[in-house]
Design a binder for these strands. Structure first.
Lengths: 250, 250
DNA sequence: CACCTACGTTAACACCATTTACGGTTCACG
DNA sequence: CGTGAACCGTAAATGGTGTTAACGTAGGTG
């Protein structure tokens, strides 16, 4: 990938850079707030020193968010990997369920990654979105279902103009590589699904929902299963529900 | 409702109490952050004085959130009132669209009301949720559609146990009064719809979506129209889309 | 009138991000 | 090999936050 940083200085710099991120993540894991002072203190440094590595607090947040997302995605992937590779539908359901569980276990991290306003700040932060690991995972998994079961997708020509642009030249995590331009309607279905998954999980995590439903996960399961038919999974609903509920029981 | 506060002192207290809230709202409207100091300064007071009225910053936030929600709901209602009372479907669509527009115009306020973690803090804040005006408005509007067009709703017995409890004895904004216990499946449909509306709007406001789609509103429109059939509106989609897009054009 | 409660003040504490000026290391280059 | 510069850390200071404590002072009440 990137050229090896040969010089001693650069290796050192890279190391503390990584330590900043890992320390921040550890801080969050311990239930404390993320702050420059706290990170610096844990590293045996003073806060201003961090400005040698990070331009602002917000940049640290973005950095950490990216890494947190990467790490969390591994969990989502691992959840899918408990199933054979050809169970494409089951794998997506388990990853989605893992996403929900992660969000509930680590609401702070969830908020950092997924409820962190991006609109105001300009390009730099947007680009990170494009790289979002979790987004890639879910698109890949939906693509796998489509390639395996072949559910109907909208024709690119039938999409509204802005939607057409968005699926042909995506700015948001959506692995366009490997999807022919004619098949980009698949990304539209992905966005529909992601919207619903995001909605139910965010609603749950922020507590704007009956706690009994959060506890039981009933509305979450309902949301997933109601979307499944759009991916041609209408004949597999019972099995998928068992899969999801089994994982929720853990 | 509450007993009139007769004494002069109590009226005074009530007045400054209201002024605190209105000042906070004005602060937000001017694009500034909500803080005790800023509110106090605008009122010609010092920050600690506010503690005579509010136990903590979080309590102020909750207070303001409640009032902001109330005010915003009036906008949603006004949007619906541009249509005749018997156009129940159009009214819900316009309110939902107004909700989206409000969220984009006032992301700060939106975050305060709808992306404000409630889980950790205990009962007091939960109770405010139950009173959420916007929740009541949307349930009322969906009920109106159901009473007018009569779309299928799940039987209460068919719901998962937790879901059954949740619709029979709602903790979350859902005007149960006026809905017979046997018809409480309607609330389940409401929750499904609210989840999707909340999801698309939050996703848009937090910027985790292709800006071109946010600008055009295509995914929002798609979300609404795809849910409409569940309310028996499958024959009205074209008209509803025109209604929504007209309002988005403003 | 005296009392006392409620309301506001100032001062202080403990955080926070951020900027500045300064000192020491480490590297690179003449 | 030494010298200069880039780099990395520091302490100090600025202005912001929520919050607590001690204190005075007006208001209404006995």
């Amino acid at each position: 990938m990137t050229v090896e940083p040969t010089t001693r200085r650069e290796r050192q710099r890279e190391a503390t850079y990584a330590e900043i991120v890992s320390t921040s993540i550890a801080l969050l894991r311990d239930g404390e707030d993320l702050s420059l002072r706290a990170v610096a203190q844990r590293m045996g440094m003073t806060a201003p020193a961090l400005y040698r590595y990070v331009a602002s607090y917000q940049e640290l947040v973005d950095l950490v968010a990216y890494e947190v997302d990467r790490a969390a995605t591994e969990r989502f992937r691992a959840a899918a990997d408990t199933l054979p590779e050809d169970d494409v539908a089951g794998r997506l359901c388990l990853s989605a369920t893992a996403f929900r569980q992660w969000a509930h276990e680590s609401p702070r991290e969830f908020g950092l990654v997924f409820a962190n306003p991006i609109a105001d700040t300009s390009c730099a932060r947007r680009e990170m979105l494009t790289l979002s690991s979790s987004g890639h995972l879910f698109t890949d998994q939906m693509k796998a279902i489509w390639e395996s079961n072949g559910f109907p997708i909208p024709a690119v020509e039938d999409l509204p103009p802005a939607a057409r642009e968005a699926v042909l030249d995506p700015l948001i995590p959506a692995e366009s590589e490997g999807v022919a331009e004619a098949d980009r309607g698949l990304l539209w279905v992905y966005m529909q699904g992601w919207t619903q998954l995001y909605g139910i999980v965010t609603l749950e995590v922020f507590g704007h929902m009956d706690p009994r439903l959060v506890e039981s996960g009933d509305l979450f399961v309902d949301t997933i299963l109601r979307f499944a038919p759009r991916m041609g999974l209408e004949h597999d609903l019972d099995r998928l529900e068992r899969l999801i509920r089994d994982q929720l029981a853990d």
